[in-house]
Nucleic acid binder design. Structure first.
Length: 263
DNA sequence: AAGTTGTACAACCGCAGGCAG
DNA sequence: CCTGCCTGCGGTTGTACAACT
């Protein structure tokens, strides 16, 4: 199959966008939407290829884009999601409203990767899920402030994610994160020791949370990635990617009650 | 002050997958 | 099933600016 080059036509502009071009693109999309990116520049009167227009809109002009530095909470989320998902920037971006995959990728390469490389390398604490009786249980310990780089106030970060990141700190402490050199993004070995844990003393409901220091009965331990996939499949009735959403739900909603799948 | 190096981020490139004809 | 188009994704590059020598 022969693929048509993106910007095969001569005369199409490349490089940084001007304010005028931005304005044309914004007003066109506000009026007509962006049904067909390939046709859009022609219809809008832009000397750009559709790909460039799409990128500009997605990464910069979209009204729901959150500008400014990443908060320490967002950075922690990126680090931990990257540990789970690897370089799946779009999947990570999906968990950070207002942030784009491109932006996250840049932040990772410029800030976070270096920070991790400079930190001490320790074993990763495996995520563990415990059942608990109270969503505001005292088993939820307040996370320590992180040593992230300068950032804007976290107040503009959604409260749900702030809450989620607090809970996330219970799962994998930041100082336990290994550098990329010694901890490949994600592979089967990561899951092989993952356990879903269960706190028998506080388990009466279907309210679940995650902890590093709880116990689990054997039936709630994942011994292999297949087992995890099966559980995540059962949970979502979908695929492994949705399995990631399963983990995400647990991570970020651990302050709430979560209906358990029937394992 | 000038040159060099490092950093941050916008933008580009090419590939893969979905989908319609 | 095949073909071609479109979109989304991740890797990479280009460039402006800051920091350093």
């Amino acid at each position: 199959m022969v693929r048509a080059p993106c910007c095969e036509k001569m005369g199409l502009k490349k490089g940084p966008w001007t304010q005028e071009e931005d304005q044309i693109l914004i007003s066109y999309i506000q009026k007509h939407g962006h049904g067909n990116w390939r046709a859009l520049p022609k219809l809008a009167g832009l000397l750009r290829c559709g790909k460039s227009c799409r990128l500009r809109w997605i990464n910069y002009l979209r009204p729901d884009i959150k500008r400014g530095n990443f908060s320490s909470e967002e950075e922690e989320i990126i680090i931990k999601m990257h540990e789970l998902l690897g370089n799946r920037w779009s999947a990570i971006a999906a968990k950070l409203p207002g942030r784009t995959d491109n932006e996250i990728k840049n932040v990772w390469h410029t800030h976070l990767k270096k920070r991790l490389l400079n930190s001490d390398t320790k074993r990763v604490s495996k995520p563990r899920i415990i059942k608990r009786s109270d969503s505001n249980s005292s088993t939820v310990t307040q996370s320590e402030p992180t040593s992230s780089s300068a950032c804007t106030s976290s107040s503009d970060f959604s409260s749900s994610f702030s809450e989620g990141s607090k809970n996330m700190d219970k799962i994998i402490k930041s100082e336990d994160i290994e550098s990329e050199e010694t901890m490949p993004p994600i592979d089967e070995s990561f899951w092989s020791e993952a356990t879903v844990e269960y706190e028998s003393s506080t388990m009466p409901s279907n309210s679940w949370a995650i902890s590093n220091d709880q116990f689990a009965p054997p039936q709630y331990q994942f011994n292999s990635v297949e087992t995890f996939q099966q559980h995540s499949f059962d949970y979502n009735g979908s695929n492994f990617d949705d399995g990631m959403d399963f983990w995400y739900d647990i991570f970020f909603r651990s302050g709430e009650s979560i209906e358990l799948p029937e394992f």
